[in-house]
Structure formats: C-alpha cells, structure tokens
Design a protein around this nucleic acid. Structure first.
Length: 111
DNA sequence: AAGGTGACTCAGG
DNA sequence: GCCTGAGCCACCT
C-alpha cells in the first residue's frame, strides 16, 4: 500500500511535513504504521515522491541527503531557518485538514 | 520463535 | 543546541 507515498505527493511545493504527521495521517487510514514505516516507504519509493518535503520532528531532512533536500527545498522556496540548515516547520508544516480538502476537491484527483 | 535493524519520536542530561 | 537512552512498529535473517 502506498498510502504514505500518496500523502507525501499531496504536499504542496514550498511546504513540508514531518514523518510523525505523515504517520498520523496515514495511520488514520491504515490504522497502524509508525514514523519509521513512513521513512521505510519513502526509502523504498526511490524518488517517485518528493521525499525532501518530508523531514523529521527537528525540521531536518534524512541524514543521507541533508544537503540534497535542503537544496531542493530552498529552490522550491520552502521556509528554511536563517541558518538554512533545517526547515522552519512553524511556517512550512502543512495543514493536512486543508491539504486533504484541496487534494480531494481539485487537481490531483485520479479520476 | 528469537534477535537485529532502521529516511523516527520523546524525554532527560 | 547537542547527545544519550528508551519506546515504537514493520521487516529481515
């Protein structure tokens, strides 16, 4: 099941989300799945999804592609902290209540 | 069945 | 702000 990838794909450009948030949104559909499973799914997905928009609770991208993710995020205009070493979750964090409504009501629909 | 691992999170020092 | 320890769930050997 690619629910995780599905949620990550709904993350708009210039924004970001945390593994915990994705885990919670996905967990709401699957009933289980911890933050680690989110990362596992992303790792398995390869590059089929904007994994760089997914960061940990510290607003920091995966240790394997920190520079890569930060470069992409900065290029997309994602609100990073003054240091540019991590994402400003306070501003970048996606409001899933709104996001779900948007993704469900227009554009990225499979139909 | 049991043990080890990992794109995580939270709490404490 | 950074490091350590414990908890967590799914997957692999």
């Amino acid at each position: 099941m690619e629910s995780v990838l599905d949620v990550v794909e709904t993350v708009p450009r210039g924004s970001a989300t945390t593994y915990g948030d994705v885990a919670e949104v996905v967990g709401r559909r699957l009933g289980r799945g911890g933050p680690r499973q989110v990362g596992a799914a992303l790792r398995d997905s390869g590059g089929a999804v904007p994994w760089w928009r997914v960061v940990n609770a510290q607003g920091r991208p995966p240790a394997h592609h920190v520079t890569r993710a930060l470069d992409l995020l900065r290029d997309e205009g994602c609100p990073l902290v003054p240091d540019g070493s991590r994402v400003d979750l306070r501003a970048a964090r996606v409001d899933w209540d709104e996001q779900m409504d948007l993704s469900a009501g227009s554009g990225s629909e499979s139909v």
